[in-house]
Design a protein around this nucleic acid. Structure first.
Ligand SMILES: [Mn+2]
Ligand SMILES: [Mn+2]
Ligand SMILES: [Zn+2]
Ligand SMILES: [Zn+2]
Lengths: 142, 142
DNA sequence: CTTGCAATTGCAAGAAGTCGCAATAAGGAA
DNA sequence: TTCCTTATTGCGACTTCTTGCAATTGCAAG
């Protein structure tokens, strides 16, 4: 649990508290290694934390996202999803068949610099979702 | 209502029906000229269509988005928003103060071509939301 | 080890959004 | 105009997500 331990230490230094609920939710996300919905997280984490409520799951996921510990995304299935913030990436999803592709953030690096230069903003988004048609679905549609 | 008339004709040709509900919702969006939430649309449109239900508003907005007549976005206030699809643009929003900036799609044109080339997908998203810190808020935070 | 404060939780109510189904009605054909 | 097909609506139940508040509890200080 090295990663979770060091995250805990870091968060405690910021004045936040590491409750059993937070640790369990962090462990679920860390073990899954993929996008999970709040109800996925609730289902797994409540096995170890019997009294856990869904409201706490929602608040914890939002908290972890604000601290840049997890990434949040709308991937078009009507539910928010979360995952540990490890590699910087984005998603490209086919509107027709749902096929998805990861896009390395490096590809957007130049655009980000351009946007920062033009706007004066400091960009912090690092988990975009692009939609389109995959090579297979492109054929039938057009 | 030239624009709505021509949209109606176009949609009818595709086999869709232009109901009073759809026309009223389209007029609300067209008159507003800005992002509206489903409940904003419902509040305005139900003045002219007494029996209108929120479920119909949600379904109509989703329908119009799928037909590329309106653009949908999550702009970070917890509610979906919609607007007529007129100029292609994106949004850059300050996480701290909420200040927003429009970004012309032309700035992303090159990235889109790059992504399409690398993935084989045909990209259809044209209403992204970027988050960051505006020049003012950047100072205090860092 | 105790104590105390404020961060966090559970609870419960409510807002936001989705969906199946039967009734309605748009609009093309006759 | 009338008829027919089927897209669309209203309804109601349900899922997803948010929020105020009082009770709990992490954890730092003594
Ligand atoms: Mn991801
Ligand atoms: Mn917009
Ligand atoms: Zn596809
Ligand atoms: Zn700002």
């Amino acid at each position: 649990m090295n990663s979770i331990d060091s995250l805990s230490t870091m968060l405690r230094k910021q004045g936040f508290r590491m409750t059993p609920q937070r640790l369990a939710i962090l462990k679920v996300l860390s073990d899954a290694g993929r996008h999970l919905s709040p109800s996925d997280v609730y289902a797994s984490a409540s096995k170890n934390i019997p009294g856990l409520t869904e409201a706490t799951v929602y608040r914890t996921l939002e908290f972890l996202a604000r601290q840049d510990v997890v990434l949040a995304a709308h991937i078009g299935n009507g539910k928010m999803v979360y995952e540990m913030a490890e590699c910087d990436h984005h998603h490209l999803i086919c509107r027709a068949c749902g096929n998805t592709l990861q896009i390395d953030h490096a590809l957007l690096q130049k655009l980000y610099q351009q946007l920062e230069g033009a706007s004066g903003y400091r960009l912090t988004t690092s988990h975009l979702t692009f939609f389109g048609l995959c090579p297979d679905c492109k054929e039938g549609g057009k």
